[in-house]
Design a protein around this nucleic acid. Structure first.
Lengths: 257, 257
DNA sequence: CCACGTCCTTGATTTGCGTCAAACGCCCGC
DNA sequence: GCGGGCGTTTGACGCAAATCAAGGACGTGG
């Protein structure tokens, strides 16, 4: 880490990005530091480090905005702060949220497939963005980095597969319970034997992620509340009283022996 | 490649695996050769090569069987020949197929998550299997190999995300059309301006993959047939007459300008 | 070639969730 | 503190797909 800090200090920074002036966002050096410490391996050489630094673009976004330029290229994005959703667009204005991301996450954003994709801010956020091809080229001889990126890709794949089960076979209540159980794990603050969630996504987002409608999500929150599993406060606070009960409602298999 | 062949010839083979006697399956050396040529980089050192060879286990399976031992560990599986499906199990006997794989594919098979997973043969197949932790340990300094595995993981992630859209927002007809369009791309044999599919998965598998029931899949095949888009012959042959028409029925966005 | 088991197709009925509409609540800006 | 816009909740009704049932087709083994 000392080495990395030395390198940082040796570099003069590119012109300030427009995102530098967004309220509450960190500077580009802080953002890159976060990327470097989370993703780049300890022993990476100066040359590679400099290459990544020169490839990095810094984007910030206010809630609901889509900060990434449409470059026609796949991109690799590090969420330095805040939270985002990856939205897939189908015909007739249909949208499906395929993933939520939080600070520290690395996201592969495809330029285009059978559907179009947009990365959208769930709350004010700072992003470190790389063109994917150039990133991969720079990374091609960096085993430690490739290992880190691979582990993250495999985790994202695991999550995506779990979503397939939810969307393909679960009832509305199971879907909502599943969503809450996952959020408890990822961003829950323990409290009184349960936990508290401060959800950055709206009911609409939750619905778009679960393949349901807003009304159905709201109804299921009500049913889980009537079962004593949770209480809500305002639009974003959810207190979960019984995580095991929620797991059971989610249709998760019991923990293996 | 010459180097790799030399190395192969230098090794004495472990005791024959039981799968060696399965009808129609290749020998373990052929299977490992396929793995090496598809996945291992050209310049890999003897030591690493030998390490992977010693980690490899060889499994074959008849249609419908699950060849992998329940080791309680994540596994990395190379499909040397045949085709497989990764089945996720939820409560109440519910199953969701999260992915199909064909010869040459590399599969990450999780030991366990909120759901249980089983890799099942769609047709007679030969698999080269590694414990995932040991595989990753052996691969940790092999940038070329990590790059190859990462590209494959990202492709699997793309596919899984596309499946989320299908399951989350598409109608039954769009789902079936999407499935057929994807299979045309992956295993279609061009014929008369369209293509022919010899599908290794049953209607049941298709339904379990698309979050539908057998009956609905059958009905949608009938509707697409009535639209002139396809004809079926037996249980596994599907002739697709109009791939563009199928794409439109799948709800895919028009190709970007 | 035939028998059998399993897969696939087809029709009728039921159901969970979507759609439509409107009232209520929250949060932000002035 | 207040007003307005937007998000959330709630109720009624409709619908695409699931469920149930049964007949037809296919593929394999003897």
């Amino acid at each position: 880490m000392t080495q990395i800090k030395d390198v940082v200090l040796r570099w003069s920074y590119p012109q300030a990005m427009s995102s530098d002036h967004s309220p509450g966002l960190s500077t580009t050096s802080e953002q890159f530091d976060r990327f470097a410490s989370a993703i780049l391996p300890c022993g990476i050489c100066d040359r590679a480090f400099a290459r990544f630094r020169s490839l990095a673009r810094f984007d910030g976004a206010a809630t609901g905005k889509a900060p990434l330029a449409k470059t026609g290229e796949d991109q690799i994005v590090f969420v330095a702060s805040g939270a985002t959703k990856l939205v897939a667009h189908a015909t007739h204005g249909r949208e499906q949220i395929v993933a939520f991301h939080f600070a520290g996450d690395l996201v592969s954003v495809p330029a285009r497939a059978a559907h179009a994709y947009t990365l959208v801010a769930l709350q004010p956020c700072a992003l470190v963005t790389f063109p994917a091809a150039a990133f991969m080229l720079a990374a091609r001889a960096e085993a430690g980095l490739l290992n880190e990126v691979l582990q993250r890709a495999l985790r994202a794949l695991d999550r995506s597969r779990e979503k397939s089960i939810i969307l393909g076979r679960k009832s509305a209540q199971e879907r909502v319970a599943s969503f809450l159980a996952t959020m408890a794990e990822r961003i829950g603050a323990p409290q009184d034997g349960g936990c508290v969630l401060d959800l950055p996504m709206s009911r609409r987002d939750i619905a778009d992620s679960l393949g349901l409608t807003i009304e159905t999500v709201s109804r299921q929150f009500g049913e889980l509340r009537d079962l004593g599993l949770l209480e809500t406060s305002g639009r974003s606070i959810v207190k979960l009283h019984d995580l095991a009960g929620l797991d059971a409602r989610a249709g998760h298999l019991p923990v293996a022996a």
